[in-house]
Amino acid sequence: MLGIFALLLVVFSGVAVGAFEQRTLPVDQPVPFSHAFHAGGLGLSCRYCHPSVERAAYAGLPPTETCMTCHTFIKPDSPNLALVRKSWETGEPIRWNRVINLPDFVYFHHGAHVAKGVGCAECHGRVDQMTVVYQPQAFTMKFCLSCHRNPEAHLRPREQVFNMAYEPDPELGKKLKEAYAIRSAEALTSCNTCHR
């Protein structure tokens, strides 16, 4: 029996480490899109390409029309945009590769977090500095609970949610927790908050 337990421990440890390593590596996309250039250099808001982030569980991915708003006029013949042009001509959507995949047993709602003043950078890191996007940390239960136990340290004014360079102020966070009517740590760490 001890041998089976040891084997399972080794297998699951390897899976957990492999999942973490895989998640921290940049994820190639079918179109070489630089967040550092578009979000950082040009200052495009996260909302421009992820339109449902303020109201839905899933932030959404940009339709081809979003890309072509600019690229009809800017570098329209670039070889890097061949797939975008093909998508535009055929109506076939671009199949973006997901960077973050939470397990099915985890409930997460982007809109709820945005409404409570949790900035994109809190989970996604400085995307505005990433040429190729990656998940900067493992989204483990420990990671989520650390924020749910002490939300004040992660809150910002709502108008700063999309500011990647904002530095949270825990003293202001205490006031924002009250102003945003954020539930108690006991309620936020209840199992059914994230597992429904």
Rank of each mutant, 00 (worst) to 15 (best):
G117N: 02
Q137L: 07
G117Q: 01
A112L: 04
T131W: 14
G117R: 01
R98H: 09
V132T: 15
A121F: 06
H110Y: 11
L102H: 07
C120R: 11
N101R: 06
G125R: 02
F105T: 10
A138Y: 06
Y134V: 08
G119R: 13
G119W: 00
P136L: 08
R98E: 13
P136Q: 08
V114A: 03
N101H: 09
Q137V: 08
G111F: 00
N101M: 10
V127G: 04
G111M: 06
V114N: 00
G125K: 05
Y107I: 11
Y134Q: 09
V118L: 12
A121I: 07
A115C: 06
E122S: 05
P103G: 13
Q137N: 15
V99F: 04
K116L: 12
H124E: 01
D128L: 02
H109M: 11
A115M: 06
G117M: 05
H124G: 08
D128Q: 04
F105G: 09
T131P: 00
R98V: 03
P103T: 15
A121C: 10
Q129A: 13
D104Y: 14
N97Y: 07
A138N: 02
V118R: 01
Y134G: 08
A121M: 11
M130L: 10
E122G: 03
I100E: 00
D104A: 15
R126I: 08
I100V: 15
V127L: 13
G111T: 06
C123A: 11
Y107L: 11
A112W: 10
E122C: 04
H110I: 00
H124M: 02
F105V: 14
V99L: 10
F105Q: 12
V118I: 14
G117K: 01
V127N: 01
D128K: 00
R126F: 07
L102A: 15
F105I: 14
N101W: 07
V106I: 15
N97G: 03
A138E: 04
V106W: 07
H113P: 03
A121T: 13
H109V: 10
F108S: 03
A138S: 13
F105H: 15
G117D: 00
A115S: 13
N97R: 12
F108A: 13
M130N: 01
C120F: 09
G111C: 06
T131V: 15
R126G: 05
N97L: 04
R98L: 09
G125A: 08
V133M: 06
Q129V: 02
C120V: 15
F105M: 13
V132K: 15
G125I: 06
M130F: 11
R126W: 11
G119N: 09
M130I: 08
C120E: 12
D128I: 02
N101A: 13
G111D: 04
Q135H: 05
I100N: 00
I100Y: 00
Q129D: 07
F105S: 15
D128N: 08
D104T: 15
R98Q: 12
Y107H: 09
A121D: 12
Q137P: 02
